[in-house]
Amino acid sequence: MKELSLNILDIAKNSVKAKATQVCVTLNETDDTFEMIISDNGCGMKQDFLKTVTDPFSTTRTTRKVGMGIPFLKLAAEQTGGSFGITSVHESESEEHGTETRAFFHKNSVDFTPLGDIISTVITLIQGSPDIRWIFRHSMPDKEVALDTDELRAVLGDDVPLDNIEVIMWIKGYLEEAYAQSE
């Protein structure tokens, strides 16, 4: 992946597939470090499967027998001297089920992949799954950018879906302005 924002898109799609109704994408950035946490309330994974998810030959795909999403993210984090972790509670185990994927990066490493176009990732996720509650928060040393689709839905009501093109363009403009502020 050329940008970390593409890894985020890819991993968050797993939450969509796990039938989550709420997905949090949290980015914590300091001058030297970058942490991403993607957590959902989806169906979760059984412990046996969870142990194998960092193995490329473990996948839920039906088109082939390899799954590269999680191995790509793990590699991207570990090649900077950072770390990767994933925890999950399967729906058969508890009412409080879901998955949390966490990756930690050292930004000063030559192997750190830049975040890239995170705004495109956020609008792609909302466009693809407008019925999920997306909670995005990006903390940076000097500011914070946040978006909770429930707040948008409160204004739009039930008749206008979040994947409406004008709504998507509004979200894009909103995030662009939020990122541009005090820079």
Partner: peptide, 15 residues
């Protein structure tokens, strides 16, 4: 838009 599509540049195509 699976891993293969995203890695090959599907995101800007979708948008």
């Amino acid at each position: 838009m699976a891993t293969c599509g995203i890695a090959a540049g599907a995101r800007p195509i979708l948008n």
